[in-house]
Each structure stands twice: as C-alpha cells, then as structure tokens.
C-alpha cells in the first residue's frame, strides 16, 4: 500500500471541502470503501465453540439460519486464515493460554466476538476454574448477551462487526492495528482491571467471599440515575 503512505494523515475536524473530487482524501475514501466492502462481506469466522453456545453457533451455521448469506460461507478452523474469532462458550483458566495463542496466531485485521454470558463475564460460573470474561485475556469487539444467545443474536453481532469494518480507515490501519510483540501471550488486562471486572456482581449472592462489601443494587450505578 505504497499509495497510502504518500497521503498526509487525516486531520481531525478537517473541512469537508478537502473531501471533494480530485483531492487525495477522495481517493483514500474510495479505497477505504472498496477494501472495507470486500473485507466485511467475506469474513471468515474462526469458530471456537467450547460449550452450549457452540451448539447455537452450529445452529447458526446450519440450514435454518444460514450464516453463509453474510459472506461467512467458509468456516476457518485454522486461526491463520481467519478474520473473526467467535468465542462461544465457557473459558477456563486451563484453556485461557490456548485462547490467547489462537488470538496471537490470527493475522491482522482481526476481530473478536464474545458469544454468551460465560465468555463475556463468566456467567453463573463465578468459580475457581473459570475466566471471568475473555476480555481479560484478549481484546473483544462485540459481546453477545444470552445464555445461550439465539442464532439471530450471533448474526446481529456479526453484522455489528461488519458495521465496524465499514467505518474503518485505511490510513489509520497501521496505528489502530499495531501489535506490540511484548503483549504476545500476556493477559490483555492488568491486575487492577481484572480485579475490578471480576468482583461479585449480584449473580453470586450465595457464594462470594466479600458479599456485603460491594453494593449491587441499581442505585450504586450512577449511570442508571436520572438527575
């Protein structure tokens, strides 16, 4: 993409006149469109189905829902040829390094869908062996709620990925998709963040060791209050 290198980086808040016909920005936006169009309509999913959600993912690939309509005809069981990782199901600490390794093996650009409550937050499994949300291990683009989510939810999540791709800019690619070699095989979140996301949050009234120290009612979440 030598062409892109010659284009001056886009300035935030640039005037719309610069996007007119014949300007460099016009050219890149057309290339953006073309590349993004081809990318988003030929996403190859890497199905990582571990548990119940994996069955719903299979249902989404099977006849009734037919994910192939969205350009996901070919399931890529090799991470090296995949574009979007669908992590469907529970992830344990024993499996976490494998998940991280699969993510590291995927080539850029790559996206990740965390399907189901267990993958997104740990779900009902607030226990010794379960990762409390795969976003502590790898970055996630779309979370799908549900236990398990219906196939329509997964299709919607993949459509959101497509929407995200549609908005990507190629000249930002090198910045947004840069990978730090030192981050390979390391958890995505630091200790503080893991502690903050994996505290008991109300689904575990019978079981947590610090119950009572954390308020779980709606009032404690400031965003829920109408001023």
């Amino acid at each position: 993409m030598g062409l892109i290198d010659k284009v001056p980086p886009r300035v935030v808040g640039e005037s719309p006149a610069l996007l007119g016909e014949g300007t460099p920005a016009f050219l890149t936006s057309k290339i953006d469109f073309l590349v993004n169009w081809s990318r988003r309509n030929s996403l190859w999913p890497m199905p990582l189905g571990t548990a119940c959600c994996g069955i719903e993912m299979m249902a989404a690939f099977a006849s009734d829902f037919d994910l192939a309509r969205f350009g996901m005809e070919r399931m890529s069981f090799s991470p090296r040829q995949a574009d979007v990782l669908i992590c469907a199901g529970r992830v344990t600490y024993k499996f976490a390094p494998v998940l991280r390794r699969i993510w590291d093996q995927m080539t850029q650009p790559k996206w990740c869908v965390s399907m189901g409550a267990c993958a997104s937050t740990g779900g009902v499994f607030d226990v010794y062996s379960m990762v409390q949300g795969i976003d502590t291990v790898i970055p996630v683009d779309v979370y799908v709620p549900g236990c398990p989510p219906r196939p329509e939810s997964l299709i919607y999540a993949l459509m959101m990925i497509q929407e995200k791709i549609r908005q990507e800019k190629l000249d930002q690619h090198a910045i947004l998709r840069a990978e730090d070699p030192a981050a390979v095989a390391k958890p995505r979140a630091d200790a503080e963040e893991i502690a903050s996301v994996s505290g008991p949050f109300g689904n575990s009234t019978q079981q947590n060791r610090v119950s009572g120290s954390v308020r779980t009612d709606a009032i404690s979440r400031p965003g829920d209050r109408i001023p």
């Binding site: 976490a96 390094p97 990762v131």
Partner: peptide
C-alpha cells in the same frame, strides 16, 4: 489477577 497471571 493472580489466577490469570498463572494461567498465562
């Protein structure tokens, strides 16, 4: 955090 660190 320690469990995650050990796992990885």
């Amino acid at each position: 955090a320690e469990q995650t660190r050990r796992a990885l």
